[in-house]
């Protein structure tokens, strides 16, 4: 369970998150939409402890992100996939995937490697285990990024615009992997500009607007005329995204 209560985050004098409250239950697939600059990435960075809080609270399974010891535990349960992949350039694909499970979770090498191969197979990259990130295409790198996150067997998966840095022809291969994940019951918090895809895979949509939650509702309602779509700012955002 992720419980965010009245979360505030400032950078210098500008307040980026102005009292965000949100809770996400295990098994949910929640998409976070919103214009660029609305604070989506900042919210994600608060969840995995990359950004500190200036007010309010953020608990994951009852653990407090602002307490270093509890954050360490949170990081075992909560994995992140990045927009720019952020793979370790000096490590092979296999080592990228197995490093943290072995080191942080203290699991056995043979076991973790077997799992890594299974994950690679799932994303269609079984033959690239010995490659280095520099030898892969963007779409392949991001699929490895997803494998690296999943190898931690996380309860929560944070994905921040994971297809934005990809060429259109590679977006599909990554979205396919994510769709399969969403069906498998992994809890996903998914920041995206792929509206159609968000509509397809998520059970719930959260709309961030200038640092506040403007809508938080089941996907069907969000896209209904008398639901989120009825909100003039949301309608404008959706229209703009559609015209892109």
């Amino acid at each position: 369970m992720i419980e965010i209560d009245n979360l505030h985050k400032k950078f210098g004098d500008t307040e980026v998150l102005k009292g965000v409250s949100l809770s996400i239950a295990p098994g949910e697939v929640v998409s976070i939409l919103g214009a660029s600059g609305s604070g989506k990435s900042t919210l994600m960075r608060c969840m995995n402890g990359l950004a500190g809080l200036n007010g309010g609270s953020l608990l994951i399974d009852g653990l407090d992100v602002s307490k270093p010891r509890e954050l360490r535990e949170i990081r075992k349960r909560c994995a992140t996939v990045f927009q720019h992949f952020n793979l370790y350039p000096h490590l092979s694909v296999l080592d990228n995937i197995t490093l943290a499970p072995m080191d942080v979770l203290g699991r056995k090498k043979a076991e973790v490697e077997a799992e890594a191969y299974a994950l690679l197979k799932q994303v269609g990259l079984a033959d690239r285990a010995d490659a280095y990130p520099g030898q892969l295409s963007g779409g392949q790198k991001q699929r490895i990024g997803i494998c690296r996150a999943l190898a931690m067997q996380p309860r929560y998966l944070l994905l921040d615009e994971v297809t934005s840095a990809l060429d259109p022809e590679m977006t599909g291969e990554v979205l396919d992997v994510l769709a399969a994940l969403a069906r498998s019951g992994t809890t996903m918090i998914f920041v995206t500009h792929e509206i159609a895809f968000a509509r397809e895979i998520s059970s719930r949509i959260v709309f961030l607007d200038d640092g506040v939650v403007r809508a938080d509702m089941p996907t069907d309602r969000f896209f209904a005329e008398d639901g989120g779509y009825g909100d003039e700012r949301i309608a404008r955002f959706l229209a703009k995204m559609r015209n892109k």
């Binding site: 990359l50 990081r75 793979l87 943290a100 080191d103």
Partner: peptide, 17 residues
């Protein structure tokens, strides 16, 4: 690249590691 360091951080690796 700070992104690479952040990836290592959120994966739970210790500062030393």
């Amino acid at each position: 690249d700070t992104g690479v360091i952040e990836a290592a951080e959120v994966s739970g690796l210790s500062r030393f590691k």
